[in-house]
Write a protein that binds this DNA or RNA. Structure first.
Length: 430
RNA sequence: GCCGACAAACGGAAUUCU
């Protein structure tokens, strides 16, 4: 039993849940009854592998084999729900624990808070903080950080900062992760000055920022329009003993790109590579996107070539971004050509790729080309989305093809009869 | 007590509007 569960925990870390289930079966076949550790490892593998239903089902499986799930098993299943944003399931596991006489601990609550946060339920996350204290369980850094992150994801920077304030009054003061989550929360809300202030504050309090903290701060500055400050911080972080990684550079590339500084973005990306950090598909795509936003379609295409020359296979996102770059530069023929070429590189265009190409045609007044792409899309088995219709309707509008635009609108509405789907944004009616 | 299972923070793409 011991040997098996050690083996399973190793497999679990890599998220290979299928293998842990096979191992469970092997144990049974050899007449070895899986214990809490073995099941715990299997539940963990399901959690890491994104299989929250299986994780929860394993708890029932345990019972049918005569084992009552313990707190760790519940916690691990709650973590699976948290990762999937299944807050209702996470909360029902909490309730279930109480029903079978188990006391949820701080880990249980932390996962439940994270589950709410990942589902956008920030008020519920805060409610859980209160609830756990009422039940005599003190939140720790994990819980608080999850709560700050929950607020941040929902754009709630004030409650996020309130949690930090509250922590200062406990014997669990904010640590580097909490500060990082708070910086990220401020950044997402465009509050770059607050993010900057938190970075200063933490250092004053003797909490050393790590690379993730700096990356969040760079993004916060970029998101607040402060691309120059973002670049400055990238330069300064080594002085504070933290070497930038590829995430840091990519955040800086995005900061420049989102603020209409495509040449700076490309420069930062090059600098990264001159520092011995190889670009990857994400960093290149960020640089291509910076060019797209700046209308620098030619540079976007060069970057796409460059990444291939470096042996970094462009992804569907890379291609879609480059198509968009061509479109914004009114290079519709190049956009369409790229759409057709990508298949040759082993990358199938998806809905986004087609949308970008259709938009490229529309911008250039090529409504016929846009319509034929719509047909091609169906022929390729790629479903049309709301955005597809918006783009193609806009293309017809630009080409003064009112009848076609209206027909497409009706087609879109007719095909959208699925209840529960969000309604299409109303196209402007001129 | 530890030596077998559990938890938190950061980066990339499309349409319109902001």
């Amino acid at each position: 039993v011991y040997t098996y569960s050690v083996l399973m925990s190793a497999v679990a870390r890599s998220g290979r849940w299928e293998e842990t289930l096979v191992l469970l079966d092997m144990m049974r076949r050899e007449g070895v009854a899986p214990d809490h550790f073995a099941f715990g490892a299997a539940v963990n593998a399901c959690a890491k592998g994104g299989q929250w239903e299986r994780a929860v089902a394993l708890l029932d499986q345990m019972r049918s084999e005569g084992l009552s799930p313990n707190v760790v098993c519940f916690n691990t299943a709650a973590d699976a729900c948290a990762r999937a944003g299944q807050w209702e399931r996470a909360l029902s596991l909490l309730a279930e624990m109480a029903a079978v006489g188990l006391r949820p601990n701080v880990t249980t609550f932390s996962s439940a808070v994270a589950a709410c946060g990942n589902a956008g339920q920030w008020q519920r996350a805060l409610g859980l903080l209160e609830q756990m204290e009422e039940e005599g369980v003190s939140p720790n850094e994990f819980t608080y950080s999850a709560a700050v992150s929950a607020c941040g994801k929902a754009g709630q920077w004030r409650p996020a900062l309130n949690i930090l304030r509250r922590m200062r009054a406990t014997d669990c003061p904010p640590n580097v992760t909490t500060y990082t989550a708070a910086i990220d929360a401020c950044g997402k809300a465009g509050k770059w000055q607050l993010a900057e202030g938190l970075l200063t504050e933490m250092r004053e309090k003797g909490v050393s920022p790590n690379v993730i903290t700096f990356n969040s701060a760079i993004s916060a500055l970029g998101n607040g329009g402060q691309w120059q400050k973002a670049l400055d911080l990238l330069e300064e972080m080594p002085w504070m003993g933290v070497q930038p990684n590829i995430y840091s550079y990519t955040a800086a590339v995005t900061a420049c790109g989102d603020n209409n500084r495509w040449a700076k973005a490309v420069g930062v990306h090059e600098k990264m590579r001159s520092q011995g950090i190889r670009g990857d598909e994400v960093s290149f795509t960020a640089a291509i996107d910076a060019c797209a936003q700046g209308g620098a379609w030619h540079m976007a295409l060069s970057l796409l070539d460059e990444m291939r020359a470096e042996g970094i296979p462009p992804t569907v996102r890379s291609f879609s971004t480059a198509i968009s770059a061509c479109g914004k530069g009114l290079q519709w023929a190049r956009a369409v050509a790229l759409l057709r070429e990508m298949e040759g590189f082993g990358v199938s265009p998806n809905e986004v790729s087609f949308n970008a190409a259709i938009d490229a045609c529309g911008r250039a007044g090529q409504w016929r080309a846009a319509l034929s792409l719509l047909d091609e899309m169906s022929a390729a088995g790629v479903p049309r989305g709301t955005i597809t219709y918006n783009a193609v309707i806009a293309a017809c509008g630009k080409g003064k093809q009112w009848g076609r635009a209206v027909a497409l609108l009706h087609e879109m509405l007719a095909g959208q009869a699925k209840p529960g789907e969000p309604a299409a944004p109303a196209p402007s009616a001129d």
